[in-house]
Design a protein around this nucleic acid. Structure first.
Length: 804
RNA sequence: GCAGGAAUGGCGGAAUAGGCAGACGCGCGGGACUUAAAAUCCCGUUCUAGCAAUAGAGUGAGAGUUCGAUUCUCUCUUCCUGCACCA
């Protein structure tokens, strides 16, 4: 029974030994080639590590282990993104300090990650809630502040009237507060804002310097939403007001039939005094009503257009036609100039509005095959580009050219402008919560806003009695007078601390830099060390972070770059997205569905190596995978068989044998698959090797190759076998096996023969056979029978195709 | 609506510089061991017909290019993910 696989006996022993040495420590300035492998750091929730964490870290761990064996100096770090609402909410509920809760949660996570046997460099562990960490988060904020990239402004925030708390956008789902399901309202509050829009162009253009997946790049571009707008002045008749309407499709100008102004815009206010008496009551009532609509009602009301006629008319300065002016809240004051020109033939929303108010529809863009038919239903509205007709000086042009011409025209005539605009808004950086980094600013009556001097950082979060948000919407910090009341660093007079804290995104915007130099108390990271390690070679994470987190961290990085504080413009060279581990039925694992399976249960039942192998085997790493208990049992069977198998091979090893082809092929396949993130097929390859070599005998060198090959995948088992076969600790510090490349090619290969596209037989040929050789073999074989051969194609080493 | 991606046996999936479709695993069927069960091991397993050798069909649907298409092109359908009354 000695060779029976029993992970419980092995795994803990090797983990203790690994973590007692510094074998996974990444050495600064090592002459080996560096490789920085970053997996998103987890939020240490009270529910312990979930399956998604286990899967991602497992996959990345196999890459880290393989690359070390290939002779690279691998930085594979771990840390904790520990500020955040779940912990704060839990603290409020339990009436315990979040600091304590966070410590406990982290301790649980560490235990679990170590039990999985991940090869993190534990010397570089970081925690965003550690004052020695957030000191530098605050320091970076001050650099932004000094550069004029952080400012305070009245900004609308989401306000939950039930909880009496300001909510971040990420806490609002479908217009409702995530925590209590109450609809949120808009409230104006003085907020810290970061000027990310200043970097909008570079955040798009410098994507070219990265090798992100296309889907990641396009998510970034879409979020920023850079577009060319054409603003055109229309004079309102009988007034001195000019409406500057905005459009991205000036090629449809000659199809315009009305103008809509957002009811909450300043212009709407100005128009009021000219509105004829018989309309004024209706208009005022409409403005009133739409201002009361919550975000949720607006979304629900989508499709059902409401609006009001002002009775005013303006002149389209391109076409010279008079257009009636409406107020309608489907037009947003924050988009473009908050005024749009209605072209019902070429915009669905405009069409719906026009139908409701009986406005004319004029088509000016040809459809496919010169289609100029009337637009009489929403389905027929033609929003694509095409050839412009009935349009005076842009007649017959393609949409693209018409736009350019129109841009020149309005600039020439001085009736408008061409403007680049973005969907991206400045980043609201304030949170009125306790569990975040305090914003290091004090407010002095005399000196105004004063940044906390750098030598007084960190501004530590005070210990308080209560973490509950206050009625006023202020952070709970506001009620701690001994903390709030302070001296002005400039004049020494009375001053108050800023009580807003930073959002969860702050600490994670630069953590990859801190891993490089986690214990530095002079600066956030040493420049020479950053020059050695940066950029991150591969950043792996969830799809939920490819817009905001990625954008925010790229923004901070660029600011640091401009200040000469980091060596590269872009922080991450490659960014990939992993799939999600779903429950058995393909739905999300959730407590309410009762389909949650935790890594803890698996470790208990199967041990770390089987769990790891299964997580790799489940499916392609970028896709979602459903949990299957049956399937992990299959992997368990295989892993235990493999264990006894390799030990048995060692007993009957035969050194008279030459180097084995199958072993060479396996070494190559596992190497390629792991580096290409095809973890599932690396496991298949092991299984296949086992199946076809159950009765084989190998030389010492080949068995050693085999053990080394499983090391990145089954790290504990490989270590155990390595020891049992009389080798010295540790298998993970060995070089990846060298193989004789010539063994990868077979001398004699079996080639399929196709006749008229159908498989009809197979022949054996030597790998260097010529077309003539093959032709002869095929004709001599019985495959073709008695037919006339018209053509014979031999694709070397692939196939023979015969046409008869 | 826009952007990105996907569709292959009963299930998860494999194979794309165009070259034997279904590797590998699960499940299922049969057998061995067992008083019996579990575990383990062996054989089989895309579908249809046939005892079989074998023949035909087959990678969401339809067309096209090609000696040859899961892979390339066009049209369409469905699904997932992110964003969105963004004009």
């Amino acid at each position: 029974m000695e060779n029976r696989y029993n992970p419980k006996d092995i795994e803990k022993r090797w983990q203790d030994r690994w973590f007692a040495t510094d074998m996974y420590h990444a050495k600064d300035f090592d002459s080996k080639e560096k490789y920085y492998l970053l997996a998103e750091f987890p939020y240490p929730s009270g529910d312990s590590m979930h399956m998604g964490h286990a899967r991602n870290f497992t996959n990345m761990d196999s890459v880290a282990r393989l690359r070390r064996m290939l002779g690279q100096n691998v930085l594979y770090p771990i840390g904790w993104d520990a500020f955040g609402l779940p912990t704060e909410n839990y603290a409020i509920k339990m009436k315990r300090p979040p600091q304590e809760i966070t410590k406990e949660n982290i301790a649980t996570f560490i235990k679990q990650l170590k039990a999985m046997g991940f090869s993190f460099d534990w010397d570089r562990e970081i925690d965003t809630t550690d004052p020695e960490y957030y000191r530098w988060t605050q320091w970076i904020f001050l650099q932004l502040y000094k550069k004029g990239l952080a400012y305070k402004a009245e900004m609308p925030i989401n306000w939950c009237p039930k909880c009496k708390v300001g909510c971040a956008n990420e806490e609002v789902v479908g217009g409702r507060h995530e925590r209590c399901d109450e609809p949120v309202e808009q409230r104006n509050m003085n907020q810290w804002v970061l000027r990310i829009t200043k970097y909008a162009d570079r955040l798009i253009d410098e994507l070219d310097k990265t090798e992100y997946w296309e889907s990641v790049k396009s998510a970034q571009r879409n979020w920023i939403g850079r577009k060319t707008w054409y603003d055109i002045d229309y004079k309102v008749e009988g007034t001195d007001i000019t409406l500057r309407v905005s459009t991205t499709r000036p090629d449809t100008q000659f199809g315009s039939t009305f103008v809509v102004v957002a009811p909450d815009s300043e212009v709407a206010e100005k128009l009021l005094k000219y509105i004829p008496e018989e309309r004024i009551t209706d208009v005022k009532q409409y403005i009133e009503e739409s201002s009361k609509k919550t975000e949720e009602e607006r979304i629900v009301g989508q499709g059902e257009k409401t609006g009001v006629e002002t009775g005013l008319v303006c002149k389209n300065s391109i076409t010279g036609r008079d257009l009636p002016i409406y107020l309608a809240d489907f037009v947003l004051s924050t988009v473009g100039t908050g005024m749009v020109v209605g072209v019902p033939a070429h915009d669905k929303r405009d069409f719906e509005f026009a139908t409701k108010y009986g406005l004319p529809v004029i088509r000016v863009i040809e459809g496919l095959d010169g289609d100029r038919s009337e637009i009489d239903s929403v389905e027929k509205v033609y929003e694509d580009e095409g050839i412009v007709f009935n349009s005076d000086f842009i007649d017959g042009m393609k949409s693209e050219d018409a736009r350019e011409k129109m841009g020149e025209y309005i600039k020439e005539k001085g009736i408008g402008d061409v403007v680049i605009r973005y969907n991206l808004r400045d980043w609201i950086f304030s949170r009125q919560h306790y569990w975040g980094e305090p914003i290091p600013i004090v407010h002095c009556d005399k000196c105004g806003e004063v940044p906390v001097p750098e030598d007084q950082l960190p501004v530590k979060l005070p210990e308080v009695e209560s973490y509950e948000p206050t009625d006023t919407g202020e952070s709970p910090l506001a009620s701690i007078s001994e903390w709030v009341n302070t001296k002005c660093p400039k004049c020494g007079g009375y001053a108050k601390r800023e009580t807003d804290t930073m959002p969860n995104w702050a600490g994670s915007s630069w953590y990859y830099l801190r891993y490089i130099d986690p214990h530095n108390n002079k600066e956030f990271a040493d420049m020479e060390k950053m020059k050695y390690w940066m950029p991150v070679d591969h950043y792996e994470g969830g799809s939920e972070h490819v817009t905001l987190h990625l954008l925010y961290s790229r923004f901070w990085h660029k600011v640091l770059f401009d200040l000469g504080l980091v060596p590269e413009v872009e922080p991450y060279k490659v960014r990939t997205i992993h799939g999600v581990v779903l429950g058995k039925d393909g739905s999300k694992m959730s407590k309410s569905l009762g389909n949650v399976i935790t890594p803890d249960e698996l470790l208990e039942e199967y041990g770390a190596d089987v769990t790891r192998a299964y997580l790799m085997f489940m499916g392609p790493y970028e896709g979602d995978v459903s949990w299957s208990t049956e399937a992990i049992n299959g992997v368990k069977r295989f892993v235990s068989k493999l264990y006894t198998y390799i030990l048995a091979l060692w007993v009957k090893k035969d050194d008279k044998l030459a180097e084995n082809k199958d072993v060479a092929k396996l070494v190559k396949k596992v190497h390629d698959d792991i580096l290409n993130f095809k973890f599932n097929t690396s496991i298949s390859a092991l299984m296949q090797f086992y199946n076809s070599n159950i009765d084989s005998t190998f030389s010492t060198a080949d068995i050693e190759r085999l053990i080394l090959t499983i090391a990145p995948i089954l790290p504990h088992m490989a270590e155990e076998i390595w020891e049992k076969t009389g080798h010295e600790f540790s298998v993970h510090m060995q070089r990846w096996p060298e193989i004789d490349e010539s063994l990868l090619e077979d001398d004699v290969i079996e080639i399929p023969v196709q006749v008229n596209g159908k498989l009809r037989g197979k022949i054996e040929v030597s790998s260097d056979a010529t077309q003539e050789d093959v032709e002869k073999i095929v004709l001599e074989s019985q495959i073709l029978g008695d037919v006339e051969v018209k053509k014979l194609i031999y694709v070397p080493k692939k196939i023979v195709s015969v046409v008869v």
